[in-house]
Simulated assay, not measured.
Amino acid sequence: MGKIGLRSALVSCVALCVLGTSAPLTAQGQQAIAIRGGTMIDGLGGAPVPNSVVVIQGDRITAVGPAANVQIPNGAQIIDATGKWVLPGLFDAKANWNWQYGEAFLRYGVTSAIVSGGRNNQGSAERDAINHGVYAAPRLFQTLVTINGPGPDLDARQNYGPGGGSRRVYSAEDGVKHVNWVHDAGADIITFQNGDGPPEVFAAAVAEAQRLGMGIDFRAMGPQS
């Protein structure tokens, strides 16, 4: 198989899962870990690789491929993955989140998730607690507060109203202001809650989010979306 995109990839928040084991894995200290014998999916569209070896050293994957092509470092911890599937950690692009979900997500192979609902300070507290090792969970990318258009659909009962975890914008200037407010509050991504309102409102807000280097997520619910 040779060199593929996983080689030297950062193991972000334990970004390799062995399905069928109790939890994802990361090398502790300097001792290498070798996951041997599983069928490996590289995440790049390649064919499954039976009897594979994945070597993790520190927080990086340093070698991956068929067992015949990968040398396992002396003294490495060997994990027998025979009969299991080995693949990069999964990314949930639309997660509904509560702190007690963390271990369940990891057991199903999800190591990163976007939380696009407005969770305010609770969202940042959960994210920071995970990053500091307080409890086991995927790496979270938090919206904290959603940005809503001014259209009439926002007032429908099935949609989220203003206040709490959302901010309503009425103009391009409003959009830019609220994007900066959410950015300064510590959000990882910007979520627009609905599609109602003039396109220039969202265009200005999106441009500002891009300028700030933030991810952008739309939860389009209005009839004009």
Rank of each mutant, 00 (worst) to 15 (best):
P199N: 12
A9Y: 02
G151N: 02
A15F: 10
A207D: 10
K3S: 14
A34F: 14
A220S: 11
G163F: 04
L44M: 11
Q142Y: 03
A23F: 02
P24Y: 00
A187S: 15
N159C: 13
I4Q: 10
G75P: 13
S22A: 13
Y160E: 03
A27G: 05
A220W: 06
S171L: 03
I33A: 11
A9E: 02
G20R: 05
A67E: 08
A63R: 05
P73L: 09
A207Q: 08
G186I: 07
A27D: 04
D184W: 02
V18E: 09
P66S: 14
G20E: 03
D188F: 11
T62Y: 05
D80Q: 08
I216L: 09
T111F: 01
R107W: 01
A95K: 03
A207L: 09
Q158D: 06
W85S: 04
F141I: 11
N180L: 14
A81K: 03
R139W: 01
I190G: 05
G175V: 02
A185P: 00
A104M: 10
H132Q: 08
T39N: 03
A172F: 08
M214K: 15
V179T: 06
S116A: 13
A137L: 09
K3E: 14
G2C: 11
I114D: 05
I33L: 15
Q193E: 15
A129K: 02
F105H: 06
W85L: 10
G29T: 12
I189F: 11
S52I: 08
R119S: 15
Y135T: 00
V115L: 09
K177D: 11
L154N: 05
P48C: 03
A187M: 07
V70Q: 04
A15K: 04
A15M: 10
G165H: 11
G197F: 01
L10E: 12
Y101L: 12
F192T: 01
I190W: 10
L16G: 05
S171N: 09
Q71H: 02
D92M: 12
V176F: 06
Q30L: 12
D184K: 11
L212T: 12
G165D: 12
Q100L: 04
D128H: 07
Q142V: 15
V110K: 10
Q224P: 00
A205E: 01
A93M: 14
P48H: 01
M214R: 13
N98K: 01
L144M: 14
V54R: 04
A32D: 11
D42T: 11
L144H: 04
T39H: 08
A203K: 06
